[in-house]
Design a protein around this nucleic acid. Sequence first.
DNA 1: TGATATTAAGTTAACGTTAACATCACACTA
DNA 2: TAGTGTGATGTTAACGTTAACTTAATATCA
Lengths: 348, 348
Amino acid sequence: MVRKKPATLSDIAAKIGVAPMTVSRVVNSTGYVSDRTRERVMRAVTEMNYRPNGLARNLKRQRTETVGLVLGDISNPYSTEIANAVREGLTARGFNLFICISEHSAKEDIAAFDSLVDHNVDGIIVATRSNKEGDERLARIADRNIPVVVVGRDFHHDHVDSIAADNFAGGFDATQHLIDLGHKRIAFIGASFDNRGSLKRLQGYLAALTEHDIPVDERLITGRKETISDVPGYSTEKIGYEGMKRLLSLPKRPTAVFARNDFTAVGAMTAIKEAGLSIPKDIAVVGFDDTPLALHTLPPLTTVRQPMRLQGQLAAELLLRRITNVEPVDVEERILECELIVRQSTVA
Amino acid sequence: MVRKKPATLSDIAAKIGVAPMTVSRVVNSTGYVSDRTRERVMRAVTEMNYRPNGLARNLKRQRTETVGLVLGDISNPYSTEIANAVREGLTARGFNLFICISEHSAKEDIAAFDSLVDHNVDGIIVATRSNKEGDERLARIADRNIPVVVVGRDFHHDHVDSIAADNFAGGFDATQHLIDLGHKRIAFIGASFDNRGSLKRLQGYLAALTEHDIPVDERLITGRKETISDVPGYSTEKIGYEGMKRLLSLPKRPTAVFARNDFTAVGAMTAIKEAGLSIPKDIAVVGFDDTPLALHTLPPLTTVRQPMRLQGQLAAELLLRRITNVEPVDVEERILECELIVRQSTVA
DNA sequence: TGATATTAAGTTAACGTTAACATCACACTA
DNA sequence: TAGTGTGATGTTAACGTTAACTTAATATCA
């Protein structure tokens, strides 16, 4: 498309017969400029629809006042809440936020990192799941002393802060709650047994069973076997629904299910109700995340609340600390507590 | 924080005793470079952890291969789906996507536009709701011949393409469907009567009633009176729940409700079930958007599907057309059809 | 064998801005 | 009246890259 060249500082300067520097001073409200000159410049700026070229400005200034946030699948409340909290923390301090999406693939993770680095953002917050190539690139970025903070990602580096919810404890508590209610056959929906290496919620579930000498029955752990390229990365209603169907067809069905997240729990609940069973009498259900939805299921969903906003706030705070501090700062690795919210899907 | 200066082209060049241009050629795989030199450069690049400075490169090249997307509240499937579709369309063509969030306030809208323009993005897709100041700024940006496409935003400009779902027809069809089923007292949840000026779904509802000579009862239209600064902008389960409660307490309650979106519908369904009423026998429910959730409510939700992905795809396509085309292009203003999906929340 | 390509570099001058310094006029002070 | 301050500008040289041009060596061909 024919794009007439946008006006530059020099264009304005030439038009009214002053030095570009004078225009720069007006535009940035720095240094001395007489009222008369200022006004003439202003008029020209408006007339020519001038906007400073950010690239040139940032190149010269060596900072962009912009932060990048890399999210996986954005269609889940976790990403969303974090993004909002990060944004609030940053805009309050005058920083812009650019969000990049990488649908949980290493390649896209890297592409996102690179495009942010290429735009010279002042720092990066990463909230995608860990993967080998991505971690390597991230380490290289951190090596270059670009401030990086990871959220909910298993990544460690000399000067990368990390924040995560205590998913293990959350999974443990959820399962413990069901055990306390007398359940022995407790299912897990949302991942396969093979994911136990990386999925903390599943680990918590397994640990709780073990602690109470309840044997682990692999048939009770159901859900897509997760790979990094799964899209969406977030476990869905569909997975919950189908997983529950499978569980219901077992010779001896579970009396309780712990779903990996609320969406999955909702899908499971649908399957349970369709089978004509009652919640929690026949089968108790626990979710995870305490999304707004959890209040509006029938019955309302018992779930584990993770402090999503807090994670975002902290991420913004720690990143700004790194960006602003002249002195090197110590690494912070925070694990935040989760809270079991008991509702009627487990106790009538 | 102590940030040791990142290596530049010249640093590499100095280190191995060649001209910066030669390094540039290696890095960009352009022009002629001997194998020996190439290899030496490559080694130095790795050794010094060199990455080209995107600001400088883009400043020189006068393009960034980056597109900005401005979303309102990202915590709703509409934003999410559009973002994903846009992203797909762009990455396929080698463009990066930066997403900015503006919680539906004019101020933040403008801040987002500005920060994108400042980073010299090659084009902008705007999917936030219309507001006066924002529209003005957007017009100024379009005046500068920066490619702009709006999605679901009521904005018209000589060279800004626009895309939207036919929300009016969707609202009409949903209401028509309920009328066809014999309903006379049909409520609308999710906005107030005062929003009829801007809310197409509500207009469709009103038009359908009028066409069938059903008098409009303002008490049956309930929901937050919307202002631009509402956060989140998306109508929620809570609003649906509370709205339905109000409707149920009316002397003569409705026999059907059309909810502004699926979330609102889910909230309404909870309220209906809590009141011991049956869906659809006592009260029929229609939602809007056909989110994944709609399949997993009980009963499954009748809803209006709007082509979210398509909107995103088209937006990417039209924007790329503007970015790529050397010739001026005609304005495209597309209104996409919606589709009524009938499920058991209206017909048993 | 000279003419013409091809390969492999180097040089120069921007892209648009601003930090740092320089200049000059004028007012004020001792 | 010289000395100092300060207000209002201008000048220069980067920031890191690359397009466009130049140079020089080597290869190819009639």
